[in-house]
Design a protein around this nucleic acid. Structure first.
Lengths: 189, 189, 189, 189
DNA sequence: AATGAATGAGTATTCATTCAT
DNA sequence: TATGAATGAATACTCATTCAT
């Protein structure tokens, strides 16, 4: 507006920014959620974090590293909620309710997290490094389920949860909490 | 004209080639399955089909058009199998077996199809044009299931199928046919 | 000067330019001679040839390819002169004169060629692909010398030529034609 | 602070380090010899010397300064050997032997030195600051030769040495010590 | 009808250098 | 005195798309 130089994301004189690396990972998650992994570029993340491009490659040796760290953080955070919900459950009945809440509230409640999860699924199909992330996550959630259910049930439940989530994510008329409750109860009945 | 210039897909004199458009769509599916949507470019598809680059934009107005047509074809083909399996079933019992075969044999049997399906899921999350494809597909499979099951069961079954497939796709130790049978029978019990 | 858009090398509406690949190789030689291999970039060559950057990577799959082709052309052209000079010589005496003319006129006469030769020497020390170019060149010049001199003399003469050229290239007071004549005659005496 | 961030050359607590500047120059020579001037960067040298990046620009005001000092040191060291060999020679005969040993043993004996020399040649062709280094070196070696030979012979010998070295450096079948001896003796005969 | 050539925007990454601590 | 962090310019290369033939 005042000259011809390409205006930076904001006014530059910013230095000393501890925790920037951390913020970049969060910015990456935001970009992945909003634009998809395919559109997640150094530039896009830098813009989202309002940081110069060079900062990206200073803090990470490759885009892959950024993605891996971002997805790891996402998986970690979802898994933590999973753990907490199920640890709090006193009996099988409560555990069933926990699972329902998990799907209806946590997993489907946040479009952001939901999309991240699906993006991770596909990225993992290609990237061995990400496969490790999904493996660890799966193992952890299965373990959490096994506090209350036998191994077979835990595994089935895990798959059902996955299906309910994905289904809702892709559908224009996602399942209602009631429908989710019904599906889970039916499987555990 | 002078040495190692951009080498064409193969030796030139190929002209009149009806069905080329069709082959390009198949080539696109191959590339998507092998490299992922993100790596599916005009060039890659042209190379896979052994066709000059210019041919791509001659037959399609944009990459998006190619992807949409390719995914439509994929969905069509999977849905057809779905339909056939379930139409052939005479009763609920047979329908359950059909679903099991569907998951264990058709969906999980082909890595190619499996990957295409997951790629479609994510692409659809971004591209409205693809959303239409997944919507139609879901509707069709639900409809097929409703020949044998009530609407609620059909929907749950659909989600369970999705979950079983995805779970197996991402896991290093995918579920065995026995485990799949068990999961589906339990839900229908 | 009239707006803010970065002005291209010249006015753009240029299409259909047969022989462009060829001109790019020449442009590369110009850049190498003027700025050195290290400063020879896609951009620099494109600028020298007044061609958009994208054109470079359309015609060559890598910078290395450009360099290899450029140096091959240079070696070819110098070797041809070498051949011609020596083929024209009728006897040993004339051959000696041919060598002198070669060094004093051809090799040292053109700063452009001289620098290209030295640049090739060093680049070849790193790049096996270029090593092949220098090998072929050396073999060819030795062969040309062997029309008139025994193998040992040919080899020594070749080395002496190399030394005289390099020496003059790097020195602030290069050798005069007389000095060159003296050196070569002394070795052949 | 959070994982795989830019890893330092090695574990941190290194401070007072007299002679570091010196070690950096040696590290620079190593990098030049192994990777070439074009690939010799602050980072690469710092890594080779196991020193933080910031240390480079603390000790040197620019990369050019590093290169100049490194090449100066190299020239110095080669020239010293030259001097010593020729000072030790008692007569013309011994001087001839000294030259032969110089080429066969010192110059061609160390791939490291050989490559450094060629790299210096080319760098000097561009960088005036380096030209001064090569000039001084040439003058010094000529002077050393002039202890035993007349000015013309010294100059020719110098060129011949250069040619023999370069020739061997670039050839896949370098000259044997016998061949080198023959060439030098013939020129001095 | 078909295609080789052309091109501008964009991508990941490297790097010399500056600077705050 | 040292150094980790920061940054803007540059690099090689990819690509969707346009166009002349």
């Amino acid at each position: 507006m005042s000259g011809s130089a390409p205006p930076p994301a904001s006014r530059r004189p910013r230095r000393h920014d501890p925790g920037r690396r951390d913020r970049l990972i969060d910015a990456a998650l935001t970009v992945i959620a909003e634009r998809g992994v395919a559109a997640t570029t150094h530039r896009e993340i830098a813009r989202a974090a309002d940081v110069p491009l060079g900062s990206m490659t200073y803090h990470f040796t490759s885009l892959e590293e950024v993605l891996t760290e971002a997805f790891t953080r996402h998986a970690e955070s979802v898994a933590r909620v999973f753990d907490e919900r199920l640890s709090a459950a006193k009996d099988r009945e409560a555990a069933a309710e926990a699972v329902i809440a998990l799907v209806a509230d946590d997993l489907l409640g946040s479009r952001h997290d939901l999309v991240l999860t699906v993006e991770l699924y596909v990225a993992a199909a290609r990237e061995p490094a990400l496969r490790a992330v999904t493996q660890a996550w799966m193992a952890r959630s299965r373990q959490a389920l096994e506090r209350h259910f036998d191994a077979t049930t835990a595994r089935e439940l895990d798959a059902l949860i996955e299906g309910l989530v994905l289904h809702s994510a892709l559908s224009t008329d996602p399942m209602t909490p009631e429908q989710i409750r019904h599906a889970i109860h039916r499987h555990l009945r």
